Amino acid sequence: MIHVERGGSGPLLVLLHGLGATGEVWRGVVDRWPGSWLVPDLPGHGRSGPLERYSFGSFAAAVAAVVPAGPVAVLGHSLGGVVALTLASGWFGVDVSAVAGVGVKLRWTPEELERAAGLATRPPKVFETRAEAVDRASKLAGVPLEHGVVPDGDGWRPVLDMAAFGVGAPDVEGLLAAAKAPVTLAAGEHDHMCPSTDLLAASPGGMVLAGVGHNAHVEQPESIDPVLAALGGS
């Protein structure tokens, strides 16, 4: 079951959060879009159930199941950006009119992949207090969260299904080639996960968002405005 929030009226924008986060990270952005919006919690995150196996395709299929028929723009951050590109391939039946990925990690070292695979096998850690669990969930996501924890026995734990860390490295080059809609890639000027050199090598027309880091949409929601304009929100 996928938890979804909706609002607005007019052309639809689907917003997909990054690994460890929840749809709440888009709160500062949705009102900047002139149409309607749909924000899911990805599987294994927030108020959505887990998947038996995590892949970019399984994430995309789950999102596709809650997107209504008709043309939609899709904006994703980090992991969500890869899922957005996957939807733009047309393989999952979503009519994507334009797609954007912000802060998509484009280069992975063997050490980074090994570390992520190790995290995917870790059992969830249970904390005595909700505040401790919220702190841990927020650290996993890299942003403050409210909906990232659940009760567990006498304690609390982050709701994130750690197995999601095992999704692996995306074939961004292949996804860009497969996209059936205009693609915009963007990253914060200070994004350590997607340096400007990597962004512009993958997409010479990529947008470097001034003054922000990896979580531009949370740090300064207004920094996303050029991306929204590229998606048809001007």
Rank of each mutant, 00 (worst) to 15 (best):
V99T: 06
H45P: 01
V159E: 06
L15G: 00
V67L: 04
D152Q: 08
A84N: 12
T184K: 04
G70C: 06
A202M: 14
G101L: 05
N215R: 05
D41E: 04
P71R: 13
A201G: 15
W108Q: 03
G168K: 11
D191L: 03
S9K: 12
D161M: 02
G153M: 07
W33L: 10
P195S: 08
G49K: 01
V66W: 04
P124E: 13
A69I: 12
L145A: 05
D135L: 04
P170R: 03
G18N: 05
A73F: 12
G57T: 05
R136W: 08
A98T: 11
A177Q: 14
E189G: 10
G232W: 05
W37A: 01
A187M: 09
P71Q: 13
P110K: 07
A98N: 11
L160K: 04
L228D: 03
M162L: 15
V134W: 00
P40S: 07
R27L: 10
G155M: 08
Y54W: 07
L13C: 08
F165P: 03
F127N: 02
L38K: 03
V25T: 15
G232I: 11
A88E: 13
K180W: 06
H217V: 09
M162G: 00
S138N: 00
P68K: 02
L106Q: 12
H217L: 15
V134H: 02
P50H: 00
E219T: 11
D41G: 01
T22H: 09
S203I: 00
V72K: 01
V167M: 12
V218C: 06
P204R: 10
R27Y: 02
L113Y: 03
V4Q: 06
G168A: 13
S89V: 01
V94D: 09
H192T: 15
M162A: 07
A88D: 13
V96A: 09
A69E: 15
P204H: 10
R6E: 14
G166C: 13
S97I: 05
V96G: 12
E52N: 02
A100C: 11
E52K: 01
V150Y: 02
R32F: 06
R6Q: 14
A186I: 10
L12E: 09
P68V: 10
